[in-house]
Design a protein around this nucleic acid. Structure first.
Lengths: 235, 235
DNA sequence: GGGGATAGTGTAACATTTTCAAAAATTCGG
DNA sequence: CCGAATTTTTGAAAATGTTACACTATCCCC
């Protein structure tokens, strides 16, 4: 029998939100994790998470957490993944965890209370056993990221404002776990007309050595217009 | 400050699951809706929903609902969409609704308690104002369906075991809200090698009139093998 | 057996993707 | 300052995939 809205619900569940935060260090996609100081997961890593206050919006809770971690408000790109409710049962009752994910430029963030929570970036190919059901959440987030990267130019959110095509290619190869032909990659990116040639070169000495490469930025305004008309980034 | 798992949660939320059930009648994709008999939404349509019993799995709750509605267990294809928690607040407290969706062959189901709940199929292009935040959920489900239809041959789950290419094309055109050239559609489908030619014809007299068309079924076993190797159905 | 309606079929133009290698720019060390 | 090493940049040809397009075949009904 369907019992909605005829039946009475039992208000006995607690809500938490977790954030899968992806950052990029130039070679690896990384996930931000905290270290637990409490039984039964003492010492284990887990996703940044918080319990919801009464009547707090799910997304707002995720945004608050983001701000606590990085000191600035992320304007748009937090997305809900799913509700996860299988594994973790708090001694006091059931907890449903609503997981979100976000992409950050590592060049942007300011660590604030990271020491206190013993937080660290972990390469997403080397995630250890996590507390609660957080491995399942990270796995789900990786798949979502892969899909998003294919259809939307989210990759740009992981790089500094000025980047080289080489960096962009490494990012896409890392996220999609495949390699691209360099010439084809550049062709495809130029065809989008979403790259702005900054007409200056990165300092060769600074990163590796040798020939400095052209710097580009992402034409966000143009993309906004194209998106409205149903543009697919397409990889 | 992150307060997880250090802080104490408050167990004051109720959980419900809703199901967006898509069926196909040969011309329209439809969504199964029930009619509310209670204020403040008396008379309004809403998605089949139920409150979770304590410690019941989210997916299990969705499956129970499915069985209540159709009298059989759907083996696989129920998928969680998201948690929705914005709009509806029960007088007794907060309710978080975890929405799922599923695809059904309308030829399979046995209506059981439908009259009692005043249930009806509604074409998904003509969904009226629904109770709670269920319009938002249906919208989300439609987008998910579109994405799934493109990458996975879920369309076959909406047709009878034996179907014609014409039926299949109408289904894809409806779900993706675009039209296909008949010859190109057939070419693409044959190239997948996932169609089994049943070497018999539909009875022309039965549906419309005129020339009876070839019947096909979907090669599920072959698809399972191809899926493991990372096959994308691709539209 | 003729008219009406839907099923079924192939080809050519066009677009996209893939494959592949050599030259130009810069740094470093001697 | 020059040569070796390293990285960036660039294009053309072949293969593959996509799109556009119109007539014949079959069956039912009258």
């Amino acid at each position: 029998m369907l019992h909605y809205p005829q039946e009475e619900p039992s208000f006995a569940v607690a809500l938490s939100t977790s954030l899968v935060l992806f950052g990029f260090d130039g070679n690896n996609l990384q996930v931000l994790l905290a270290k637990s100081k409490r039984a039964p997961y003492d010492g284990a890593l887990f996703l940044p998470s918080r319990y919801l206050n009464e009547n707090e919006e799910l997304m707002l809770s995720a945004r608050k957490m983001f701000k606590q971690l990085f000191g600035y408000e992320d304007p748009t790109m937090i997305e809900q993944l799913q509700a996860f409710g299988k594994v973790f049962r708090h001694p006091g009752g059931r907890v449903i965890n609503v997981a979100h994910y976000a992409l950050v430029r590592k060049s942007d963030f300011q660590a604030s209370n990271w020491d206190e929570n013993d937080m660290q970036w972990v390469p997403f190919t080397q995630i250890p056993d996590l507390a609660f059901d957080h491995n399942e959440i990270v796995q789900y987030a990786k798949e979502r990221l892969k899909r998003r990267v294919k259809r939307r130019p989210v990759g740009f959110r992981l790089l500094p404002d000025e980047f080289t095509l080489g960096q962009l290619q490494v990012l896409y190869e890392t996220a999609l776990e495949k390699t691209f032909d360099k010439r084809n990659f550049r062709k495809k990116l130029f065809k989008t007309t979403l790259l702005i040639d900054l007409e200056k070169k990165a300092d060769g000495r600074a990163d590796g050595q040798h020939k400095g490469s052209q710097l580009f930025s992402f034409n966000k305004e143009k993309y906004q217009k194209m998106k409205i008309q149903g543009y697919d980034f397409l990889f």
